[in-house]
Simulated assay, not measured.
Amino acid sequence: MPFDRVKGDVFPFEITKDSLKFSGNLSRKSLNLVKCKGQISGVLPHICDRCGDDMEILVNESVDLLLSDGACKTENLDVMEFFGSIIIDEILHSEVESLKAGYFYCKNCENL
């Protein structure tokens, strides 16, 4: 989806990948910045960080980002830079990888 398709109005989106749903709105903030406000929900397969057993993480995460068309010179860490288009799949992938970077324990290991 190109940046120029996002006008000042709210531009709704929704994608589903595996068992996760990412939905929300995009809105233009300036010539090179678009606001992404949304929600990621569903179930994420994971491996227990203690015992290695398969488990699932229930996901219900808010997403509130600025998206930049090109390099962005700001101190704000919640900016994703794109070159030529907004890739909603890429935002979802990035948020899921950030989530998976945490430590998660299965029910058997939670109280050890």
Score class of each variant (00 low, 15 high):
Lys17Asp: 13
Leu33Asp: 01
Thr16Arg: 13
Ile91Tyr: 10
Cys72Pro: 08
Ser62Glu: 10
Glu75Thr: 05
Asn32Cys: 02
Asp89Arg: 11
Glu95Pro: 10
Phe22Tyr: 08
Ile87Thr: 09
Ser94Cys: 09
Lys7Ala: 15
Asp49Asn: 03
Lys17Thr: 13
Asp78Asn: 13
Ser62Thr: 06
Asp89Ile: 01
Pro45Cys: 03
Cys109Asp: 04
Ser68Asp: 09
Lys37Val: 12
Val10Gly: 15
Ile87Cys: 11
Pro12Asn: 01
Arg5Ser: 15
Asn108Asp: 04
Ala101Lys: 05
Gly8Asp: 15
Glu97Ala: 13
Leu67Lys: 00
Cys51His: 12
Ser94His: 08
Lys17Phe: 11
Phe3Gly: 07
Arg5Phe: 13
Leu44Thr: 07
Asp69His: 03
Asp54Val: 04
Gly24Glu: 02
Pro45Thr: 00
Gly42Ser: 04
Val6Lys: 01
Ser30Gln: 02
Lys100Met: 05
Met80Pro: 11
Lys29Ser: 05
Ser85Tyr: 11
Ala101Tyr: 04
Ile91Ser: 10
Cys72Ala: 15
Phe82Thr: 02
Glu97Thr: 14
Val79Ser: 00
Asn60Ile: 08
Leu92Met: 08
Leu26Asp: 06
Cys36Phe: 04
Phe104Thr: 03
Tyr105Gln: 02
His46Ile: 02
Glu56Pro: 05
Met80His: 06
Asp18Ala: 13
Asp78Gly: 10
Leu112Cys: 06
Leu33Gly: 11
